[in-house]
């Protein structure tokens, strides 16, 4: 599995309130919610993002509320991966559970700049900065989590296990 796209770069501690403000959470329609993705931190994001683009954050990306709507709107906008130095734990769980690819990589987060073209090889965890001609190595997921992602999320993986039982 691979991804390739332009980078939207954000600072440390991007919280789920700026990813998708709670004032919109009277809806659960992913497409409707996605129109407000990143609205309170980057009002231009939704207009500029293209299928396959990549978000790069710093430390503690996705902190705050447990709202699964946060990784869901990012995924629905067409973002192919979020790279950060670290993720808030519920955002991390939610991303895995809904099959939204994320990678932890401090070097990539430090070096990649807004607008860089980046490609990712998920099997090896190698992140290539096409613009700068650099490569960074992300921690690969443990097999248990790879199984969930490969199944397309937690519910599919539970169903698959039940089928095998």
């Amino acid at each position: 599995m691979n991804a390739n796209g332009r980078v939207f770069k954000y600072p440390d501690n991007v919280d789920t309130d700026v990813i998708i403000p709670a004032r919109y959470l009277n809806s659960q329609d992913a497409k409707e919610l996605a129109q407000h993705c990143m609205e309170d931190i980057d009002p231009e994001f939704v207009r500029k993002v293209h299928e396959g683009d990549i978000i790069v954050g710093g430390w503690n990306f996705g902190c705050g509320s447990s709202r699964e709507h946060a990784p869901l709107v990012i995924k629905t906008c067409g973002v192919s991966c979020v790279i950060a130095k670290s993720f808030a734990r519920i955002f991390y769980r939610n991303s895995i559970n809904i099959g939204m690819p994320i990678l932890e990589c401090e070097a990539a987060s430090d070096a990649i700049e807004n607008g860089d073209e980046v490609s990712i090889d998920f099997d090896t965890g190698v992140i290539t900065n096409v613009t700068k001609g650099e490569m960074y190595q992300a921690e690969p997921f443990p097999p248990f989590i790879q199984d969930i992602i490969r199944a397309g999320g937690l519910m599919n993986s539970i169903r698959a296990k039940e089928g095998n039982a």
């Binding site: 769980r93 939610n94 937690l154």
Partner: peptide
């Protein structure tokens, strides 16, 4: 499926927040 579920550690429980898919599972 709420981040402040960690509250119940006060009574000596393991309690943590997850997402909606966690709740479904």
């Amino acid at each position: 499926a709420d981040s402040h579920t960690c509250t119940y550690g006060a009574v000596g429980a393991f309690s943590t927040g997850g997402g909606s898919t966690d709740m479904a599972a």
